[in-house]
Design a protein around this nucleic acid. Structure first.
Lengths: 126, 126
DNA sequence: GATATTGTGCATATTCAATGTACACAATAA
DNA sequence: TTATTGTGTACATTGAATATGCACAATATC
């Protein structure tokens, strides 16, 4: 369970954690039934309080990604491979649709946007 | 000058206004020398206080997009067509790079991402 | 010069993220 | 059965960011 925080992103801690867990579930690193680390352990590891961790877990539960049980822990919720696939595609589509709308509003052509996308794909770092 | 606010975006008011103005300048709807409406007028139109409007204008000024003069108003700053073009490309690249990173983190291939992008391009509405 | 219009600054209220601490429930060991 | 440990949960508080209202200063208009 590798989690990290970047102060530079501007996003609140609970949001960063949510995003990372979400990604790990969607890409298969975390599977149905897997136990999440206790929120205290995560908090200690990241040198933060339990609250943002708790909140991230809460939102993951509300989104149906995990289930939590008092005294036992939190676990990745069961989800069919098909649903997982559909969710993944839909979330990626949302993000790209957003970017597409933005590029269109700037007057770019689809070809230009595709060019920029593949450029970004090649050099993820910068 | 059409401006609007969406409570659903989660973004602060001043940020929404900044983004919209920015887009209108970049796509040419607003040109060098054009006068912006007085911040009070915008505030009244949107039924908000002047502060978020002021702040949006401030950040636009800091970014070099507009110039403000006490008693006279605010105006789109002069900017060469080349610079405008470069800025546009760079902002589009940022947005796409972000989306690209997200899609990669989900384990998508470039081809899949490109497919989703062109789909989104075709049907902007949904 | 008088007045209206414009951007600016300051004190205040509100919202939200994060902290610390105390509580409630479940599993295990004695 | 009881005590202990490990787990998620709830509450009161702090601090920062956002938004409000009103007063101020500079410019334009008459």
């Amino acid at each position: 369970m590798d989690l990290f925080l970047t102060g530079s992103s501007g996003l609140p801690i609970y949001r960063q954690l949510f995003d990372q867990l979400c990604a790990q579930i969607l890409d298969g690193r975390l599977k149905s039934g897997d136990a999440l680390p206790p929120i205290r352990a995560v908090a200690k590891e990241l040198s933060i309080s339990v609250i943002p961790v708790k909140r991230a877990w809460e939102e993951l539960e509300a989104a149906g990604f995990i289930e939590s049980f008092v005294g036992r822990g939190c676990f990745i919720a069961p989800m069919s491979a098909e649903k997982l696939q559909r969710l993944k595609a839909s979330m990626a589509a949302d993000k790209l649709s957003d970017a597409a709308a933005y590029c269109r509003s700037l007057g770019l052509s689809l070809a230009e946007a595709e060019r920029l996308l593949s450029d970004a794909w090649a050099s993820p770092g910068e």
